[in-house]
């Protein structure tokens, strides 16, 4: 094969470089032009618009994805702010309720204490009255017992005393 082609080269141009064999130039140029036209048509009609479309579409997808991500991020920040605000509101409300309740309870307590004080004072007054009555009763009883005892003692001693004198003496002693 090698010797055959070598012979062909020698026969074709006589030169050692097939590149300088001018008899093949028109053939190569013709087929090159055909090749270039075919590649140009294929590329400019089909391949390049399609690849450009794919690249543009990808760029569009990336851009819109980024925009969507930005949107979602803003929404997340909004949601967080709303949550924090709601939390702060709820806390303030709770504190207000606690303060109100405390004031209410305090008022009720004060009222109850005042009432109890009144009742205690009333009871104390009643008791004092009762004590005074009992005391008076007791003094009367002591006077009676003292009169009787004095009369008996005077009788035993052989005296005879008038009832009015004894009462007067006892009253005088008890006063003293």
């Amino acid at each position: 094969m090698a010797t055959e082609t070598h012979g062909a080269a020698e026969a074709a141009g006589g030169a050692s470089m097939p590149q300088l064999d001018f008899s093949t130039f028109s053939n190569q140029i013709f087929w090159l032009v055909v090749t270039l036209v075919v590649i140009y048509l294929v590329l400019s009609r089909v391949a390049l618009p399609r690849i450009a479309g794919v690249l543009a579409e990808r760029q569009g997808t990336i851009t819109s994805d980024l925009a969507a991500a930005e949107d979602l991020k803003a929404k997340a920040v909004d949601a967080e702010n709303a949550y924090n605000k709601a939390l702060a509101d709820a806390r303030a409300e709770a504190q207000r309720i606690v303060a109100d309740t405390r004031a209410e309870i305090q008022a009720e307590l004060d009222e109850a204490i005042a009432k109890a004080d009144d009742q205690i004072a009333a009871k104390a007054a009643e008791s004092e009255k009762a004590i005074a009555v009992i005391k008076a009763g007791a003094l009367e009883s002591v006077q009676v017992v003292a009169k009787d005892t004095t009369a008996e003692i005077v009788a035993v001693l052989g005296g005879n005393a008038e009832a009015d004198d004894i009462a007067e003496a006892v009253a005088g002693q008890m006063k003293g």
């Binding site: 074709a12 097939p18 590149q19 008899s23 028109s26 013709f30 087929w31």
Partner: peptide, 26 residues
Amino acid sequence: HPMDQFVVQPLFGDGHIAWYTPTNAT
């Protein structure tokens, strides 16, 4: 023969190479 690989040959037959002949270049 390092230059033999560059020889332009007809694909079919062994004749004259015209401008339209399908060759190994084609």
